[in-house]
Write a protein that binds this DNA or RNA. Structure first.
Length: 603
RNA sequence: AGGGGAUUGGUGUAAUCGGUAGCACGACUGAUUCUGGUUCAGUUAGUUGGGGUUCGAGUCCCUAAUCCCCUGCCA
């Protein structure tokens, strides 16, 4: 279980708020004005991994419950034994908790309600609202008609009630083969809404269920089961995606059918709770696919390393990637809740991640592609082998995060990309004859470029002892202050820790993967992963107690995340980082920093 | 003989009873900066089309267009 969400999910009023506000004002669920009656749920089917689209649903449903002071429930809609597995129950439970979707009480399962659903189904048969149909699946399909033509009644539609009750009981007892009979609701075969043309309520499936085992031989269909699950749990607002809009009349019909004839003194008992179904548009990010089938193809064909490969849009992948649940929720809130089939700029998610991590991630210095820098005058101002410890700010956004010590010596490593032999005018970093600040270190001037063929292999530089800590030197006799335009990151080679860094980029190069050819594989980004096997990280990189104490670096999921200065946000990969000392930890790049130089250089 | 839903700058999203079309992201300027980050200031750009009602329409009426969903014993 996790804590309540932070202010990032603070309400942004949308149409569902308005619906709920009205219900509360009119007292639809109880005393007018009582906001705490609001109950929502997240009802995943345990047949796969959760993805970013589900995050929107979790954020919405959980957020509403929190905002109104009501309750949020996690319920598995496990009505199909052939597709569902315990493994998915476990991963989904973990993901919802990680997302901050704290639920009330125990996790619920639709399968726990099977007996109650069965009793209600018998009640519907007795009331003349349902019948056992012995037609084949093909016959039922043919009898349903088409979009423009009415369907035809099943020959079993008007069979005696007792026949249906008896057959239904025997279906339940396991007397019949899969597919040989179904229980159908008697609604309207001529309805323009196909969902109302005598929908199937139960089918025979002689399969082992991951929770109920061999107890059942019949399983309820979504339309029959879902509203009942909501009703049993006292859900007030059953929120789902747009494609279920056409199902709402059926959702309401089933509950109305159960309530038909119920009331004070009725043989059937009291009326049952009738939730309000409301539909919203699903999340639709650019550069992402969420189709379960296509994601599976990526895994099966080894285009990615698994369901939690940090390039995948699954929650478990985003977690490994270093995204925070707070950022994901902020994104889901930011894009709003409407009925419009929108397209959501993936950059907005990346931005939410930057936004969150800029405030919270401790800073460290890491050199991805080292270039050797020798300080030629290091021995002129003290012992040539000495190491000076410099003070570096842990998080400029949060002074309370404190500082740390980083070593500086005569041999350093800087980023290859921070040096250019033939630099354009606006290149502010190191170039022959140029001066640059080593952040929290000294100012250095490049005097000599050592090359092996075309490759630059070493820079020989002098440092200015008056710039210790990176500060500007004192003004000269005329009062002029020397300035330097660029500041770059670095590590002392002797003390640096070698690490493996995985630079992830978007999995697809097309905004709508597969749009051009029909196959998303064609739009795969060949550069979505670059493994840097030996990057160099400053030695005292572990999150400090001071950082944890003030919130910076204290991520409640326990994942260590950092900003590697000037590079981006990274996290320790829990899965690939070995426990044994001596092996290189693996860091994943969540997202780069914004880079206005790259933008300008690309022009 | 179909039914249901939707349409506001490049993107997303607001606008109480019909009364100044606002916010965020992006893009572009500039300032600040020991991260080409952050922050700050500014610029850019919109009511799907056509009619109508009205002093006044994103909002009401008529009409057209476009997009999404629906013919599983999946959810």
């Amino acid at each position: 279980m996790s804590e309540a969400p932070g202010p990032e999910t603070s309400p942004k009023r949308h149409f569902i708020h308005q619906i709920i506000d009205e219900h509360i004002a009119h007292g639809r669920w109880g005393t007018p004005g009582d906001r705490s009656v609001v109950r929502t749920r997240f009802p995943p089917e345990p047949n796969g991994y959760l993805h970013i689209g589900h995050a929107k649903s979790i954020t919405l449903n959980h957020g509403l419950a929190v905002e109104y002071g009501g309750a949020f429930i996690l319920r598995f809609d496990d009505t199909n034994p052939e597709k569902e597995e315990q493994e998915f129950v476990d991963s989904i439970t973990r993901d919802v908790a990680w997302m901050g979707g704290a639920w009330e009480g125990d996790v619920r399962f639709a399968s726990d309600y099977f007996h109650q659903m069965y009793d209600w189904a018998v009640e519907l048969i007795r009331k003349g609202f349902a019948y056992v149909d012995e037609q084949s699946a093909e016959q039922i399909r043919a009898g349903r008609g088409t979009l423009t033509e009415a369907g035809t009644d099943s020959p079993f539609r008007d069979r005696p009630v007792d026949d249906s009750v008896d057959l239904f009981a025997r279906m339940k007892a396991g007397e019949f083969a899969d597919g040989s009979k179904v229980l159908r609701a008697k609604v309207d075969m001529a309805s323009p809404n196909l969902n109302l043309r005598d929908p199937v309520m139960y089918r025979i499936v002689n399969a082992r269920h991951h929770r109920t085992g061999d107890e059942w031989h019949i399983y309820p269909m979504y339309d029959w089961a879902h509203g009942l699950e909501d009703s049993i749990e006292g859900i007030t607002n059953s929120i789902c995606t747009l494609e279920f809009e056409n199902h709402r009349p059926l959702y309401d019909w089933f509950i109305a059918a159960i309530n038909d004839g119920r009331g004070p003194g009725s043989e059937w008992g009291k009326a049952i709770h009738h939730p309000q179904q409301t539909e919203f548009a699903r999340l639709n990010p650019t550069f992402v696919i969420t189709s379960k089938r296509k994601l599976k193809q990526l895994v099966d064909e080894k285009h990615v390393e698994g369901w939690d490969d940090p390039r995948m849009p699954t929650i478990s992948a985003l977690r490994r990637r270093g995204y925070t649940p707070e950022a994901i929720r902020a994104f889901c809130t930011e894009i709003g809740t409407t009925k419009f089939n929108a397209s959501h700029d993936y950059g907005l998610l990346e931005n939410a991640v930057r936004d969150d991590l800029n405030k919270r991630a401790p800073r460290r210095m890491c050199v991805l592609r080292p270039l050797k820098v020798t300080i030629t005058n290091w021995g002129e101002h003290g012992d040539a082998d000495r190491v000076e410890w410099m003070e570096a700010v842990n998080n400029p956004e949060d002074d309370a995060a404190g500082t740390r010590q980083i070593p500086f010596g005569g041999t350093l490593s800087i980023e290859r990309a921070d040096f250019m032999e033939d630099a354009p005018k606006k290149f502010f970093r190191l170039k022959p004859g140029g001066e640059v600040r080593l952040r929290y270190g000294y100012w250095i001037t490049c005097n000599e470029v050592i090359k092996d063929g075309d490759e630059v292999v070493e820079l020989r530089c002098t440092y200015d002892p008056q710039t210790r800590g990176g500060d500007a030197p004192p003004p000269d006799a005329e009062g002029n202050v020397r300035k330097v335009k660029g500041t770059i990151h670095w590590v002392a080679t002797s003390h640096a820790v070698p690490i493996e860094v995985r630079l992830y980029d978007r999995l697809f190069t097309a905004e709508r993967p597969g749009k051009a050819t029909g196959n998303p594989i064609d739009d795969l980004n060949p550069e979505s992963l670059e493994v840097v096997e030996r990057a160099l990280l400053e030695p005292n990189w572990r999150t400090t107690d001071a950082e944890k104490a003030v919130g910076t670096g204290a991520f409640r999921d326990g994942i260590e995340r950092f900003q590697f200065e000037r590079l981006g946000y990274f996290c320790v990969d829990e899965k690939l980082t070995p426990d044994q000392a001596g092996d290189r930890p693996v860091f994943n790049r969540a997202v780069t920093l914004k880079d206005s130089w790259a933008k300008q250089a690309g022009k």
